Simulated scan of single mutants.
Amino acid sequence: MDSRRMAGAVAGGLVAGLGITALLMAGERKTGEPSEIVTLERKTAEKLGIDTPAADALPSSREQAVTQGGHLLLSAAAGAVYAATVDEEASVVGSGLVFGAAFYAAMHWITGPLLGVKPPEWQADAKTIGMHSVNHAVFGLVTALGAKLATRR
């Protein structure tokens, strides 16, 4: 496995994850409500028997650091999965879009509902599904681009 490609994919995943994190935190400021990722973190904490703030409370800086730090770790891990599973010769656009869609399906359609930390995605409204689809498509594209750029000679 090419270590530069792995590093590039992880970096791409982190860049995309940071962008999504910024959007989520900006949404919290705009609406005065916790973001979807904070809600997921709280539901996970509750399942583990950890006390959580009120559902409508904005996250403290500590909670935000834990939540967004976990989100970025997941983004980096997804970048590593991309590098390990996608052929080096694959196109950035094709592989990025397929990877982003697969990651979206894995997290929102399967894992979250199976763990009981989010309602099944098929119960979400079209706007939410569209937003999640676009976010994960961009995530996949940026991850693929990072991998490709890291291997340019």
Score class of each variant (00 low, 15 high):
T111M: 15
A45W: 09
A57V: 09
I110S: 13
E28F: 01
G32F: 04
A90Y: 12
L97C: 10
I37A: 08
G116I: 06
Y82N: 04
E88L: 12
A144D: 03
T128E: 15
V86C: 07
L73M: 06
D56L: 11
L24W: 11
L18V: 09
V93Y: 08
S91V: 03
A11S: 06
V98N: 05
L114K: 08
L40Y: 02
V93W: 12
A11I: 04
G146A: 10
K148I: 01
G146V: 10
G69D: 06
V117R: 04
E121I: 10
H132F: 14
G69T: 04
P59H: 04
S91G: 14
I110K: 09
G116Y: 06
A77V: 04
P59L: 02
V138G: 04
G70S: 13
T39D: 14
V134D: 06
T67Y: 10
R29E: 06
I129V: 15
V66H: 13
L72D: 00
I129C: 08
G79H: 06
I20T: 11
M131N: 09
W109Y: 15
P34A: 04
D125F: 08
S91H: 07
T128G: 08
T39Y: 09
L14M: 04
T44C: 03
G27A: 02
A54F: 05
A101E: 01
A57L: 10
L14F: 05
M107H: 11
V10S: 02
I50F: 03
I50T: 01
R5M: 08
E33K: 15
V10C: 00
L74Q: 09
L149E: 11
M25S: 11
V81G: 03
G32T: 06
G27K: 03
G146Y: 11
A22R: 11
T143D: 03
G13I: 00
E63R: 08
I37W: 10
A144I: 07
M6F: 09
V15C: 02
G49M: 10
G32K: 01
T85H: 05
K148A: 12
G32M: 02
E46W: 02
V38L: 00
A7G: 09
A11Q: 00
F139G: 05
A45H: 05
D2N: 12
G140R: 12
I20A: 14
M25V: 14
W122T: 11
P34W: 01
A45T: 02
E33S: 12
Q123E: 15
F99Q: 07
A144T: 07
H136E: 06
H108F: 15
D87M: 00
R5C: 06
A105D: 09
E28V: 05
G70Y: 11
L149V: 13
G116K: 02
A76S: 00
G94S: 07
A144N: 05
A7L: 13
K118L: 06
L114D: 07
T21P: 02
I129L: 15
W109D: 13
L24Q: 14
H136F: 15
P59E: 02
R42M: 02
H132L: 15
A55G: 08
V10H: 01
A84S: 05
V138D: 06
R29I: 04
W109S: 13
